[in-house]
Structure formats: C-alpha cells, structure tokens
C-alpha cells in the first residue's frame, strides 16, 4: 500500500516537472517502485523483466533520444482544462466500475476459480517445468511468444529504417 502511494506521488512529480531529464529520472524511479510492488504481488518474473526493461532499457532509450533532441518542455499556451476534465470524467467512470469488482485477495473471485487450477494442478506433469509462468509462456502459449518476437523484430527493423535514412541524408 505504501509502495502504491509512493508511485502515485512520483507520477504527480512526472506530470508537474518540465525538465525532461528530471522526468526521465523520475520515470526510472517509478519503474523500480513498480518492480518492487510486483515482487510484493508475487509476480517475480514480471518484476525482473520490469526492472531490467522498464527501469534499465527504457531509461537508456529515453536518454539517447534526449541527447538527440532538446532537454526542456515549453510552457503550454492554453490552460489544459479540457484534458483535465476528460481525465477526471474517465477516472470517475472507472472508480464507479470498481465498486462491482471483488475485493483485493478474495479467494472466491472468478480469477482464482476458473482455468488457473488446471494449470497449477497439471502443468508440472505435462511440461516438467515447476515454474508455471515459464511453462505457460513457453509451452501452452508458445505461439503467442513467437508473435511477440515478431513484434520486437518489426519494431527493431522500423527503428533501423528510420535512423539509417537520416545518416544517408547527412552524407549528401
């Protein structure tokens, strides 16, 4: 609960801060807090990925982009009343939606009674891997992981295509 509150505070700092370097550093802190919260929520595999990819790689990518662009954000000309209104209305609708959801850690919630007992009970016998996350990711949903690598490959190809064109133009 404390962690989540700290994350909310860091998010406010990100919204308010105009120096983009500071925003990137706050974003890294936010990712580490998120990784810690994920450990507390028993999602150890996700926490490791978030700490390395979210707090590590994303920060490096953002810093590299800042190096190539400008470091400060200009002050907006208009007062952001409409976006604030949109955000508050959507937030209110979502909070209204949570009233019908089961309380935190309710063992009778639908998420714990369907599908999962099958994986927890049979996956060790069927795949021989004790870590259920690994067996679902690599075995039961292997095609999904293949699709994911396709997405990463496409994004990498896109980045190379965008930045290579630039280098060629510089040569001319």
């Amino acid at each position: 609960m404390t962690l989540l509150t700290m994350m909310a505070v860091v998010t406010v700092a990100i919204v308010a801060q105009r120096n983009l370097f500071a925003v990137v550093v706050f974003g890294s802190i936010y990712s580490f807090l998120m990784a810690t919260a994920l450990v507390a929520l028993d999602a150890v595999d996700v926490a490791m990925t978030e700490a390395s990819v979210g707090a590590g790689m994303s920060t490096v990518l953002l810093l590299a982009a800042l190096h190539l662009t400008r470091g400060d954000e200009v002050k907006p000309l208009r007062r952001p009343l409409l976006p604030m209104l949109v955000a508050v209305v959507i937030g209110a609708a979502l909070v209204y939606g949570t009233i019908g959801l089961p309380a935190f850690s309710d063992p009778q919630a639908a998420i714990h009674t369907h599908v999962v007992p099958r994986y927890l009970g049979d996956s060790l016998r069927e795949t021989g891997v004790p870590n259920v996350v690994t067996s679902v990711l690599a075995s039961y949903r292997g095609y999904d992981t293949l699709g994911e690598t396709t997405v990463v490959f496409t994004a990498g190809a896109g980045v190379i295509a965008l930045l290579r064109r630039r280098r060629r133009e510089k040569k001319k």
Binding site: V46, T49, E50, V53, M57, S58, L62, E148, A155, G156
Partner: peptide, 14 residues
C-alpha cells in the same frame, strides 16, 4: 504482462 512489457519497450523505441 511479460509479453506486454517487451512489446511496450519495442513501441517506445519505435
């Protein structure tokens, strides 16, 4: 969410 994190960093890079 493991899938979502990896796809997220790919879209961020692009």
């Amino acid at each position: 969410i493991l899938t979502a994190i990896v796809v997220g960093v790919a879209t961020l890079a692009l």
